[in-house]
Amino acid sequence: MHVLNEWTNLACKELGLDPAQVDRDKILDLTKEVAHNVARPAAPLTAYLVGLAQGSGTASEDAVERIVALAKNWGQATEETLTDS
């Protein structure tokens, strides 16, 4: 995790963010669930989308948890979407 800590700190510095405000484990859990339950390329895209929503102020406090739940229930969610016509 040493490299991950260094990378996080340097990336935060470059982006003008406070590394103390980054919940690394929460984001890693998010990307793990999306990668395993939806598709691997969806993981970084989802992290980016959550970041955009957070930055624009449209993400709720529980946005990450809601997206993790959506990923865990991906099969059911897509089934329901396909039958809602």
Rank of each mutant, 00 (worst) to 15 (best):
L45H: 11
E61W: 13
N73T: 06
T81E: 12
L52R: 14
T8A: 03
S85Y: 05
Q21D: 08
L45I: 04
G16I: 01
H2N: 10
L49W: 07
E33M: 06
N73R: 11
Q54S: 14
D84C: 05
S60N: 15
K26F: 11
T81G: 10
V68C: 04
T78P: 05
A77Y: 00
L28K: 08
E14N: 00
K32W: 07
T58W: 10
L30C: 06
D29T: 13
A63F: 11
V68M: 02
N9R: 02
R40D: 09
R40N: 13
D23P: 00
H36N: 12
L49E: 13
L70D: 00
A39W: 05
V3R: 13
D84S: 09
V34W: 03
L28I: 05
E33A: 13
Q54M: 14
R40S: 12
G55W: 01
E33C: 08
L10A: 02
E6M: 05
L52C: 14
T78Y: 11
P44Y: 02
D84E: 07
A39Q: 09
V3T: 12
E33K: 12
E65Y: 06
N9W: 05
E33L: 07
Q54C: 13
E14A: 04
A20N: 10
D84I: 02
T46E: 02
D23A: 10
W7D: 03
V64G: 04
L28V: 05
D18H: 03
